[in-house]
Amino acid sequence: MSEGTVAKKQKLSVPFDYDKYLRPKKLPHIWCPGCGHGIVLKALLRAIEASGLNKDDICMVSGIGCSSRTPGYVDFNTMHSLHGRAFAFATGIKFAKPNMKVIVITGDGDALAIGGNHFIHTCRRNIDLTVLVYTNAIYGMTGGQYSPTTPLGDIATTSRYGNIEPPFDACKMAEAAGASFVARGTAYHTLELEKTILEAIKHKGTSVVDIIDACPTYYGRMNKYKSATHMMEVIEKDGTVSVKQADKLPPEKLEGKLLRGVLYKTDRPEYCEQYATQVMGKATGK
């Protein structure tokens, strides 16, 4: 079923007044023509509207890179932090003010390479952060170097002979490290992504959404994709299968495809609550 048909059949969240959550004067954003980051941002803003959260209670923290420019465009408490360290800054804010909804915006290089250790330990603590990893298989801000999710053999400015480093699966990593909500979406499946992000926001604990989106300028051009649309069709639509469909498909049809949807969800004690009840409780003898 195409997204268009889905859009018709379900109650639509569009047209949507994005300006309610944007800092409209900051637009146009810095992202290249066809970059998927804007599509993801729109899904996120619709999910936030659906969550009913108040703008004053939302904090968005990012690291460094293209996706990490997101906080500059949204009207929340926003922090553009250091490369890879968004998790740690966000942990500090959330821990100091547990009533805030803290959303981490990070890219695959930011989260899985330079921020890999922070990513792991954020998941392990299961602190209540909503983490959106924009996975576009490239370092875009610096001009197209291979990233921890660049597929084997692919071309980047630092892998002219083909990438020899196997790519990371952010979802498997998150689940193994202890995140209590793990999901994947794509910019192509934007309504599905909106619902997934909403579920992630509502979840108490570390929720990680790996979002496949396209970098047509660097990754696309170097790897012979014709356009942003072409990338969305090949990588995001044909390269993924929803978890619901996957159950019905034979293993050979799933080969080389990434699963979409909520991949893992469990109830596990959340860090700030544990601190309040276990640590502060014992320290004060309550």
Binding site: A88, F89, T91, F95, N117, H118
Partner: peptide
């Protein structure tokens, strides 16, 4: 609030976050 972070970089980052809050 006391938290033992995963490394020194994370520690100063979390402390900055705490201060900003």
């Amino acid at each position: 609030k006391f938290i033992q972070m995963e490394d020194e970089i994370a520690s100063i980052a979390a402390a900055i976050g705490g201060s900003l809050a």
